[in-house]
């Protein structure tokens, strides 16, 4: 029992604190909410949904984006199934969250491939831990030949190294590879951009026409 909380409640709080973005205090608030304010159905519904979630939702077998499992037992995401998308353009991202962010922009009309992780030798992630085989077969899918790949990994050291690795792999396959630009946010005044971002924007400048 911690801080006067019943052991069972403290245990639930501890489990909730494992969730991303949830700290100790928030976890305690959630646990107390279920124990006191919420009616029983709220907890039961949430519990049931969580238990069965993985039966209904899995990574897409084509792109690793999160997908609903169809009646045939296969998981294919809405983007891969969308016939209006440009099947010759593929955007590679590190995480599903990055895909969702790019989707919100509405600027990407092609398809995606989610790596799930970045090259990071210091955290024990090598090239063999990346889904490169799956990416290769995706690129060579005869049903939908990819002509251009946009690498949209984050501009961190690990993200840049992953992008360089992918560019080399795919360059050898004769596919046009580009990297997302890095620079100032739209709508923001230049004066508010931090020095590093502004410096990168100037280094990555484009000529007119």
């Amino acid at each position: 029992m911690r801080g006067g909380l019943p052991a069972r409640l403290a245990r639930v709080a501890q489990m909730l604190a494992r969730l991303p973005g949830v700290g100790e205090k928030t976890a305690q608030r959630y646990a107390l909410f279920f124990a006191t304010t919420a009616d029983e159905a709220t907890a039961r519904e949430l519990g049931t949904e969580l238990v069965t979630l993985r039966e209904h939702v899995r990574p897409c077998e084509r792109c690793n984006h999160i997908a609903e499992v169809g009646e045939d037992g296969r998981a294919r995401c809405a983007i891969c199934l969308d016939t209006r998308r440009d099947g010759t353009l593929l955007c590679i991202v590190a995480r599903v969250q990055d895909l969702l962010a790019i989707e919100r922009s509405g600027a990407m009309r092609g398809r995606y491939f989610v790596l799930g992780r970045l090259l990071s030798p210091l955290e024990g992630v090598g090239a063999e831990d990346l889904p490169l085989e799956a990416l290769r077969s995706r690129l060579q899918d005869p049903g939908e030949p990819i002509r251009e790949v946009l690498v949209a990994t984050p501009p961190s050291v690990d993200g840049e190294a992953t992008a360089l690795l992918l560019a080399r792999e795919m360059g050898a396959m004769g596919i046009q590879v580009s990297r997302i630009a890095s620079g100032v946010p739209h709508g923001g005044d230049l004066e508010f951009a931090d020095q590093v971002t502004l410096g990168r924007a100037i280094e990555g400048r484009k000529s007119f026409g």
């Binding site: 090259l119 030798p121 090598g126 090239a127 063999e128 050291v157 840049e160 190294a161 992953t162 360089l164 690795l165 080399r168 792999e169």
Partner: peptide
Amino acid sequence: RRAERAEAVGDAEIEAFEEL
């Protein structure tokens, strides 16, 4: 170091970090 321990490490991985 991993390459020296005869683990399968491709040149592309070394080159990526060398470039940076």
